[in-house]
Design a protein around this nucleic acid. Sequence first.
RNA 1: GUGGGCGUAGCUCAGCUGGUUAGAGCGCCAGGUUGUGGUCCUGGAGGCCGGGGGUUCGACUCCCCUCGCCCACCCCA
Length: 427
Amino acid sequence: MSDARLQVPRGTRDFYPEDLRRREWLFGHFRAAARRFGFEEVDAPVLEHEELFTRKAGEEILEQLYHFELHGRRLALRPEMTPSIARMVMARSGSLRFPLRWFTVTQNWRYERMTRGRKREHYQWNMDIWGETSVTAEAELIAAVFDLLDALGLAHRDVKIRISSRALLEETLRNTILADRPEAFPGLCVAIDKHEKIGEDAVRDLLTDSDGPVGLGEDDARFVISWLGLRKVEDAARHVPPDSRAFADLQRLFNLLDTYGLADRVVFDASIVRGLAYYTGIVFEAFDADRKLRALCGGGRYDRLIESLGGSAIPAVGFGFGDVVIGELLSDKKLLPEPPRQLDAVVFPFGDDERAAAIRVANALRRERQWSIELVLGTPRLRRVLADAHRAGARFLYVLGPDELSRGEMLIRDLDSGEQTTEPIPN
RNA sequence: GUGGGCGUAGCUCAGCUGGUUAGAGCGCCAGGUUGUGGUCCUGGAGGCCGGGGGUUCGACUCCCCUCGCCCACCCCA
């Protein structure tokens, strides 16, 4: 107990059978929702070249990278899935037919301090659409999130998605305070993403830090922060031309979501900017209605990621949805199930004289019916076997004792009704 | 990193202001005559009381250190 070698590393989890059943229940919903939206599942190694993740915008996610050097190669455990998928798309961009709808359910790693809803190892459902520039893609993704939440049993009003547009912010700033140095924009986004967590004053300090990536004046910083407080698309679009693409996209997205029947579950919130540097357009995050927990998921449009990796431009939009926060929410709402073991039957030979026949019975049931069969090992008492079979949730118990065997039969007990029948032992 | 709380049986915990053989519930194991169930009854195994040091005639109990966990803050997808 006090031996550190015998404990899981901090921030990681063991999954015992009941834990894994619950995890697979959640993953099953991830996959089912993805398939309802026509997405295909892909996978990639948990280990990548560190360079795949290296970006220069002061993102915390990269400072928290699990990384090491081995035989002169710098490797890292993936902190998120998007770069790996971008790599896969890039490698076959010449032969893939777009738009692509790909999803993953993967383990991701980040070295960070532990709090509620944050672990160092967690699983994430990732959904991406590649090769589509219109916000019809964003609308599908947001609809998929709600589709999942509904399937999990959450109430209509339990979760809201907040939506904003980095493109709208970028246009606004290009027309104003970043007119002569647009390259500062990603760093600015990373800084103001912290706004809700560290407060306006701290963000102002970050933005005005002359040694920092942004280096704004006081008035400019105040302008940026005041923009974040806006909750109406029209207000946020005040500093862009009437024909602004970003403005039009936002309006169209909300119109589309209305058509999906999601109008009362989404809201514009200019303070959503996301902490990753690569986002370029619409960004969004899902929150529990009580705002007790961290974001359930987050995503957005990243049209230039593949370009930045050296490929040709392929527009993309996606989100990541972690298993930890949704687990907290479902637990709070008493919606976490305790899925039973899936066992069709237990086959019980009384002793070694009956074992050969029992093995034939188990073989037949496994092969012909594809049943899940637990063949009793050793020679416990029938009483014990019945209790165990009951507890395991088995539907039938096949009993092969001396009496049955002498008649070439086996006893089949229905564990729900208690009814018993006999059948010939298969050859 | 800061503050607070907690480490006693596999799990959840109780052990009053220090007092001798450390408890409960659940779980586990075994029985309750021959081969029949989540109940019931009986019995049992299992704890260097997280670790180390100190105070004391005596420490699960008090003090210090240390490790671990939880919560909040801080930080951040």
